[in-house]
Design a protein around this nucleic acid. Structure first.
Length: 478
RNA sequence: CGGGGCGUAGCGCAGCUUGGUUAGCGCGCCUGCUUUGGGAGCAGGAGGCCGGCGGUUCGAAUCCGCCCGCCCCGACCA
């Protein structure tokens, strides 16, 4: 693999991002426009994200199911807002088995249509509710401009689809899953996020309310890291999903849906990366500790690898994902750089001098500081050292977000501020879509998040001066 | 879809203006020796339908036409 120097993340963030993803062996573009190949290092990180999410889905009472990749196009059209929202990015199958299809099929851009039309058959009574299902899969949205992990025409994600007997219960479910996303982002990915609501302009096509968690990337742009929707009875109405309540009355079912994608992998890169490459939170690092042996002679090689092997075994017993890099064709300095590029949280160096002194050198990816420890202590101190890296990454990301969150006190403030200083800008908004549009037209920034509980900020709208009803957070976004 | 740029070895590029016999450079790759505590050195070697099709010409990577693909910038999105 060709590992060269990286572009400067401060002056050329998009180029830096692309090079990190490629050089770290995470992903690359594939032949059809907008598609990507996920490579072992990138897919490996995604597997830990998946596991963290899936474990929590199970703990909150959900089961996994799988619905098909394509379904009749006319199904999509039953929910007006929904079809309108997705029409521009649909992939449509017109031919199959060498013949033109009588009914075109769509490749799912999301699965509400096929799932709700199926739920109609599964739900008759309040006793069938709630239905708490999730599926892991891929979806296709015909994107024009793509970026590895962040926006590709096909991407991997999970989508939860639940059905409930009451509005309150569905609403609670949507918030519960938002909290799951928040917890995974913060505790597992070490990405500080703002939970909240989307404005009507930004919400999911077909939802009553869309909830979101938003992260702030190192270049000052926001990234939506997960969304959860309260669907009201919109899809139940469109797909005729009714149930008999305890009083024997026919009612429409209440629904939610929620999704998070491998975009989160891109979020990890853009939140924690630095000029040397990726910095991985230990909880999603495919390799948490790498041991690099250093030797000159064959005798030293044997001796050093023996110590490295014993250390590896001790760490494996502690449940740590560890690898000994015993490749003979690369020298130590090369390996240091490569593992730093790949973001491995902790490196242990073992050389002849260390073996003689019964010690090793440890270096963490957070501070780059080299420390000597006894071999025994190195083994026992690793779980705590990994926790320190995990916490340190979150701490520094949070400090970055705080330093880049600004309060706008006038419209000029907001408009010029977002242009001059990327980041999150907070200010009162009256709720009028016209005012929202004006800001977007002037600055390319959008409302990323509104408070979970609407609460008057007690100050006039920054745009029109009318009564402010919301404290909106604005930013340019991915 | 509108504007700009580019297709030559796995990757990054030169050569094209002014056509000429064997198409070159860096990185990577293979072999050997020396090396190995922050991206090793030397020597030898493999690897090309010059994006495709057609035209001009004794002769095309080079000139002309058409086509295909990719990248960047403007309206949508996890």
């Amino acid at each position: 693999m060709d590992i060269g120097r990286l572009p400067n993340p401060t002056t050329d963030f998009p180029a830096w991002y692309g090079e990190v993803v490629k050089q770290a062996g995470m992903a690359e573009h594939s032949l059809a426009r907008g598609t990507m190949v996920a490579k072992p290092h990138g897919y490996g990180i995604w597997e830990f994200v998946q596991r963290a999410l899936d474990d929590r889905f199970k703990l909150t009472g959900h089961e996994n199911v799988y619905f098909p990749l394509y379904f009749p196009e006319k199904l999509l059209a039953k929910e007006a807002e929904h079809v309108e929202g997705f029409a521009p990015e649909l992939a449509v199958i017109t031919h199959g088995g060498g013949a033109k299809l009588e009914e075109p099929l769509v490749v799912r851009p999301t699965s509400e249509a096929i799932i709700w039309s199926t739920y109609a058959n599964w739900i008759q009574s309040y006793r069938d509710l709630p239905l708490l299902y999730n599926q892991w899969g891929n979806v296709v949205r015909w994107e024009l401009r793509t970026r590895l992990f962040l926006r590709t025409s096909e991407f991997l994600w999970q989508e939860g689809h639940t059905a409930h007997a009451s509005a309150d219960e569905a609403h609670e479910e949507a918030l519960r899953m938002l909290e799951v996303y928040r917890e995974v982002a913060e505790d597992v990915l070490a990405i500080p996020v703002l939970p909240g609501r989307k404005s009507d302009a930004e919400k999911f096509a077909g939802a009553v309310t869309t909830f979101t968690i938003e992260g702030l990337m190192r270049d000052g742009k926001a990234l939506q890291c997960g969304t959860s929707h309260f669907l009201g009875q919109n899809f139940a109405r469109a797909y005729d999903v009714t149930f008999l309540n305890q009083s024997g009355e026919l009612e429409l079912v209440w629904g939610t849906s929620w999704g998070a994608s491998w975009r989160l992998v891109g979020g990890i890169v853009m939140t924690h990366g630095d000029e040397r490459g990726l910095r991985l939170p230990p909880r999603v690092a495919p390799v948490q500790v790498v041991i690099v042996p250093i030797y000159r002679t064959e005798d030293q090689r044997i001796e050093v690898l023996a110590v490295a092997g014993k250390l590896r075994d001790a760490l494996v017993d502690d449940g740590i994902r560890v690898r000994v890099d015993d490749r003979d064709q690369y020298r130590p300095g090369y390996k240091f750089s490569e593992w730093e590029l790949k973001g491995v949280p902790i490196r242990i160096e073992v050389g002849p001098k260390d073996v003689a002194a019964d010690q090793v050198v440890t270096v963490d990816r957070l501070t780059g500081e080299k420390r000597q420890r006894s071999t025994a202590q190195a083994a026992t101190s690793m779980p705590a050292a990994l926790d320190e890296v995990q916490a340190g990454l979150h701490r520094s990301a949070l400090a970055f977000r705080e330093a880049n969150t600004h309060t706008a006190s006038s419209y000029a403030d907001l408009r010029d501020g977002i242009t001059d200083q990327a980041g999150l800008w907070v200010g009162p908004w009256c709720g009028d879509p016209g005012c929202e549009e004006r800001v977007t037209a002037d600055t390319k920034a959008t409302i990323r998040v509104l408070p979970l509980v609407p609460e008057g900020p007690g100050a006039p709208c920054l745009v029109c001066g009318g009564a402010g009803t919301e404290l909106a957070t604005w930013a340019r976004a991915y």
